[in-house]
Write a protein that binds this DNA or RNA. Structure first.
Lengths: 180, 180
DNA sequence: AAGTTCGTACAGTTAAAACTGTACGAACTA
DNA sequence: TAGTTCGTACAGTTTTAACTGTACGAACTT
């Protein structure tokens, strides 16, 4: 039955490619492959089932699936009579992109802004201070300008994140199904 | 001269924070710190100078600065009488974001799309084929639908990348200097 | 041409991340 | 209560990435 294999090969190729490029979302290939497996699975899967399909340890499945759950890419489902935990993929990729992008970038930018503010305050203090030498003040003013320049950029990034988090971005770039 | 140190500490805090969060752009902290150093440097720097400032090997400086060059975050400058290569940071962060985001994402999405197309073709072939069992065809149709769903999403991402690469995004989210 | 200085390739080392196997607690079964 | 089954914490191992030191080619100086 070579045709069955052909289908599986086609599926596997895409899953692999997808898994490889998931680093864009901060997801390792192994975890990505697991997502791909669930994405194409007809029915929800157990840890043991995943383990068998991917040829990895059950421990890995457990931690990977938990990771995917935290990213809201996978959810646990209940089925009466089945004692094992069952998982299935969540297939709204727009939502996933929005979540992942927002979380990752917001975190980084916030940290940067807060340390930037602290530094900016200190530098302002230095500039105000009477005892600071004129020479040092000049240097401080240059730094201040650079920090303010950076701050402006961070605010822009924050607004970009806002528009993605709130889905406002879809007003500008609609989801549509147009050809490439 | 504690005030000099205060300025340096303020600067170092920001550079460190920036460097830590550069993984968002696919840049390691070490390379990020080098960029920060150059960003705040009054004058272009030599490899030896960077090495001394960061306490790392000259080899690392060489490879890191080359990386930053490829990302168009740093450029080589000429100064008559100076034999060593001189480097300075490129400070248009909007441009940098645009470049980095486009390059990284375009690459990944393209690879995914091309493998997706190949798989889609194979599956279509399978569906058309007279010899394929009805059972397998049903399975193939499900896969086909999932692949097409994915393709639609990739096209959206591509349009997002387009808008960032062409700077059209700034029409929607202007660079402005408004308060947060 | 011989002697410097500079930047980078390459091989080796160190540091970090991914993965596995064991072992154990929780929940179920008899 | 004793016996299963399941999922995960933890420690140990393997794999991968980052960094260093040596060594060499290219370009310059004398």
């Amino acid at each position: 039955m070579g045709e069955k294999e052909q289908l599986e090969r086609a599926r596997a190729r895409f899953i692999d490619s997808m898994a490889q490029n998931m680093n864009l979302y901060g997801i390792t290939p192994s975890v990505g492959r697991l997502y791909g497996l669930l994405y194409f699975s007809e029915t929800p899967m157990t840890l043991d089932c995943m383990k068998d399909e991917l040829g990895m340890s059950k421990t890995s499945m457990s931690t990977s699936v938990r990771q995917l759950q935290e990213l809201k890419m996978v959810e646990k489902v209940w089925k009466k009579g089945v004692r094992k935990d069952l998982y299935q993929s969540i297939d709204d990729w727009y939502e996933t992109f929005s979540d992942l992008f927002s979380v990752k970038w917001r975190m980084g930018v916030s940290l940067n802004i807060s340390s930037l503010r602290k530094s900016l305050d200190e530098i302002n203090e230095l500039i105000e201070d009477q005892t600071t030498s004129e020479e040092l003040k000049a240097e401080a003013r240059i730094d201040k300008e650079k920090l303010e320049h950076a701050l402006e950029y961070y605010h822009w990034i924050n607004r970009l994140i806002d528009s993605i988090e709130t889905k406002e971005i879809f007003k500008f770039i609609p989801k549509g199904k147009d050809k490439e």
